[in-house]
Computed example of a mutant assay.
Amino acid sequence: MKIDDIIRNRRSITSFKPDPVSTEEIIDLLEVAKWAPNHKMTEPWRFLLYNGEGTETFVQAFIDAQPAPNGEVSEGVKRKADHFRSIPAHLVVVMPEDPRQKTWDEDHAAVSALIQNFQLAAWARDIGMIWRSNDWIYNPAFREKIGVKPGEKIVATLMLGYIKDVPKAKKRTDIREKLTIIDQHQ
């Protein structure tokens, strides 16, 4: 597949086959993704992979991070937790939170580029994912239970597996509507 086609055809996937994605396959994809541009070659990323039985650690951290009046887990949280259990793997991507704004911006851009590389390389292997950055990733209970260290930012929780259903493409704005051309030679 040409890279143009991979980029145009990639979708956020929420429906996965139950087949596990091997840890070695995920490592191989990360080895490809690490070639993302990053300022001063700092490689400002770290990964937490919840695969196989490890998925329950991620799910339990999600449950514990939800408000539970009277100690009761809501039906909505239970449904979402069951859905998370059905997803073959959860990859949490974190970066250091540098207090210098320029470095923070550069690190965030590099990590985002790595995530896009990971998504595209995975798509070429029929592995799909959805990039989540829900409000619960900021909850100290969730962060602690999944192993995020103080001074780190969760950039994404990537929920991934072999693709079951591919949603239809959503319309994109013609780039000419978003482009300003400054050309002194016209």
Rank of each mutant, 00 (worst) to 15 (best):
I63K: 06
D64C: 01
A68I: 02
A68Y: 06
G71Q: 07
G71T: 06
E72C: 04
E72D: 12
E72I: 15
V73M: 01
S74L: 08
S74T: 14
S74Y: 03
E75L: 11
E75I: 08
E75V: 11
G76S: 12
G76K: 12
V77K: 05
K78E: 13
K78P: 00
K78M: 09
R79E: 13
R79F: 08
K80M: 14
K80E: 13
K80Q: 13
A81V: 10
A81C: 10
A81P: 15
A81N: 11
D82V: 00
R85S: 08
S86N: 15
P88D: 09
P88S: 10
P88G: 10
A89E: 03
A89G: 01
H90W: 08
L91C: 13
V93K: 01
V94G: 00
M95H: 00
E97R: 15
D98T: 07
D98H: 13
P99W: 01
P99H: 03
P99M: 02
Q101H: 10
K102E: 15
K102Q: 12
T103N: 09
D105E: 15
D105V: 10
E106P: 00
E106Q: 14
D107T: 00
D107N: 15
A109E: 03
A110N: 05
A110E: 05
V111S: 05
V111I: 07
S112V: 10
A113S: 13
N117W: 04
F118E: 04
Q119P: 03
L120S: 04
A122W: 04
A122L: 06
